[in-house]
């Protein structure tokens, strides 16, 4: 009986996280279209609802009512499995992310490793979608995505090693607690190169512009999901946006002090902002990174494939290796407020 109650309590917590997450994904698409359109001096969606606020629901409804086309020579089982494989890890990783002090589904010790493992599984959805569709464009997209994600995972992993060296823990909550204090106590400052590397590889991991060669509308139509339609296509879309929010949330937790206010512990400003709950600070930081995603999309041209590989292997990975050694030195010397 007790086990049953516990099980339903966990399920309730998961639902309480997933529903707002899906809403956030829906409004992320809306925000993206609005921000991009204002960058391009357009108005963006403004017909459905007040200022187009109901547009995401109209889109979802449209996709739900469309037919899911199965290509004739596609591998049926894998074709249907691929979208599920891409959304599952994107949602599963959220289990260990603390949204505020103590507000987390599973407070596990190996949290950071768990997140890395989950995000590294997302590539299966893309690869299988590309292969199962039995289409040349889709296969090309899948191959590009596979190589890109595997390469950038290494740079990302090294950047996270820096964080865990600085925090001395793999537990998400403890990583944030290690950054307690005002904005200059957070890890973005001592780990600045790793922060930049993490963010670039995060953008590459999610196959977003300027690293979106996996989709590359102008080269291979839509890459790995060119044969998908209706809800199956929508699930790929959901997974992409859920992954973007996940990467942004991770960046906020690992480098921008999670739920801490930027004025934490300051003499005058600190008490002034005490009434703001930690969740709000966290969400604000996430929004900052999400805006960066859109901003990149609006301003950067797409990288060429070989240039992406060069950036990942020959620039980002050496930078992280060098900075890991610097971090080791800083932490031996107990420098500043971060390593004492």
């Amino acid at each position: 009986m007790n086990a049953l109650i516990e099980l339903s309590w966990i399920t309730a917590k998961i639902v309480a996280l997933i529903v707002p997450l899906f809403l956030a994904v829906a409004y992320m698409t809306y925000a993206e279209r609005k921000v991009i359109s204002s960058m391009q001096l357009r108005r963006g969606p403004n017909r459905v609802g007040w200022h187009g606020l109901l547009q995401p629901f109209a889109d979802a409804l449209k996709l739900l009512m469309k037919e899911v086309v199965l290509p004739q020579n596609a591998n049926r089982f894998l074709f249907v499995l691929a979208p599920m494989l891409s959304i599952m890890p994107a949602l599963a990783a959220w289990a260990v992310l603390p949204l505020a002090d103590g507000l987390v589904i599973a407070d596990v010790n190996a949290g950071l490793l768990y997140v890395l493992a989950m995000t590294s599984m997302g590539v299966y959805g893309i690869i299988l979608a590309g292969w199962a569709s039995n289409s040349k464009y889709a296969l090309l997209g899948a191959l590009r995505a596979g190589a890109q994600v595997v390469s950038y995972e290494i740079a990302m992993g090294f950047a996270l090693v820096g964080v865990l060296m600085a925090a001395g823990s793999l537990n998400m909550g403890e990583i944030i607690q290690a950054q307690q204090g005002p904005i200059w106590n957070w890890f973005w400052l001592p780990l600045l190169p790793l922060f930049v590397v993490y963010w670039i590889s995060g953008v590459a991991e999610t196959n977003r512009l300027p690293f979106d060669v996996a989709e590359g509308e102008s080269e291979i139509v839509a890459g790995f999901h060119v044969e998908y339609s209706g809800m199956a296509f929508a699930i790929f879309f959901l997974a992409e946006y859920a992954n973007m929010i996940l990467i942004s949330g991770l960046a906020a937790i690992l480098f921008l002090g999670g739920w801490y206010s930027p004025f934490e512990g300051l003499p005058l400003l600190g008490p002034l902002f005490d009434w703001v709950p930690g969740l709000v600070w966290f969400l604000l930081k996430v929004c900052l990174f999400l805006f960066l995603y859109i901003w990149f999309r609006g301003t950067f041209p797409r990288y060429r494939y070989d240039q992406i590989m060069r950036l990942g292997w020959k620039v980002l990975i050496p930078v992280t290796v060098v900075w890991l050694i610097v971090v080791a030195g800083l932490s031996l010397g107990e420098v500043g407020p971060w390593f004492s």
Binding site: A117, S120, M121, V123, Y124, G146, V149, V150
Partner: peptide
């Protein structure tokens, strides 16, 4: 996450 992706 890594080895089997390359395998595939």
């Amino acid at each position: 996450g890594a080895v089997m992706v390359l395998f595939l």
